[in-house]
Amino acid sequence: MSAADVAEHEHHGTGLYWKIFGALTVLTVVEILWAGWFGSDAFIVLVLGLGLMAGTKALLVALYYMHLKQERALIYILVVTPLVLVLIMILGFLPDAIWDLSQQAR
């Protein structure tokens, strides 16, 4: 991010940072309530809801507090590469774990 980008970004004050802070706080409260509502009774709903909220929070921090939104392609490549590699690892390991669990259940 260039100095000019930053100056433009912060020209209107720090209001955006406070909005992100509010969103992070509200999402954290909703996450805790969500975990209380669904517990282990509806595990898929629990995981999907919490995953979506945690992912949104992480994205807000990266885009606005780490200023990723104003970065250029090189930084995005640096960020996305490990995520792709880890996704490949997850796709490799998780089916094996689920298979193992299904064998134990028999």
Binding site: L78, P82, L85, M89, I90, F93, L94, A97, I98
Partner: peptide, 28 residues
Amino acid sequence: KIGMWLFLASDAMGFMGLIIAYMVLRIA
């Protein structure tokens, strides 16, 4: 900045390795 992002990217892989191990153990 490139150096810091490179460090964070490799550090993120360290964290994600631990998280994957946690998920696999938990599911299994």
